[in-house]
């Protein structure tokens, strides 16, 4: 291994049908500016396509954004599919319009962190860096 640290690789995806990608795109750029390599899959992705892309890209993290209210169903499915594909090392985090009362359930399902609207992007980058240390 080189003396330099491993680059953090992140996949940002929008599962489901909603096209509100402002937050996702802002996070993509912010993570780039935090020195990470970010793959963006675009809007209207099925959980299958997201998990498949995460595996092919060999990422450390998958960030999911959903504003349509379908998060419980979609996020949980992505986590399950990642596990089924043997990508256990991939950490899933999320953002979007997620009611506070849904957060415990999502965390239990394996979404490690949820960043509500208004979260500074540097907080997200910081969290990823801290989480990457355990990889």
């Amino acid at each position: 291994m080189n003396s330099k640290k491993r680059k953090i690789r992140v996949l940002i995806a929008k599962p489901g049908l909603d096209g509100h990608d402002r937050g996702a795109k802002v996070v993509v750029r912010a993570l780039r500016d935090a020195g990470m390599e970010v793959i963006y899959t675009g809007i209207r992705q099925t959980p299958e396509a997201i998990a498949g892309a995460a595996v092919q890209e060999g990422v450390d993290f998958v960030g999911l954004s959903c504003l349509s209210g379908a998060h419980n169903h979609l996020f949980t499915k992505v986590v399950k599919l990642l596990r089924a594909k043997g990508a256990r090392g991939v950490t899933v985090f999320a953002g979007g319009i997620i009611p506070a009362s849904d957060i415990p359930g999502l965390k239990k399902a394996g979404v490690k962190a949820i960043f509500p609207p208004g979260t500074p992007t540097r907080d997200i980058a910081q969290w990823l860096r801290a989480a990457a240390k355990h990889l």
Binding site: M36, G52, A53
Partner: peptide
């Protein structure tokens, strides 16, 4: 060149083949 990070956005146009 500033941050060492990168946006890898080509996949977006080929993502339909992921499955």
């Amino acid at each position: 060149p500033f941050s060492g990070g990168a946006v890898l956005g080509d996949r977006i146009r080929m993502q339909r083949h992921t499955a």
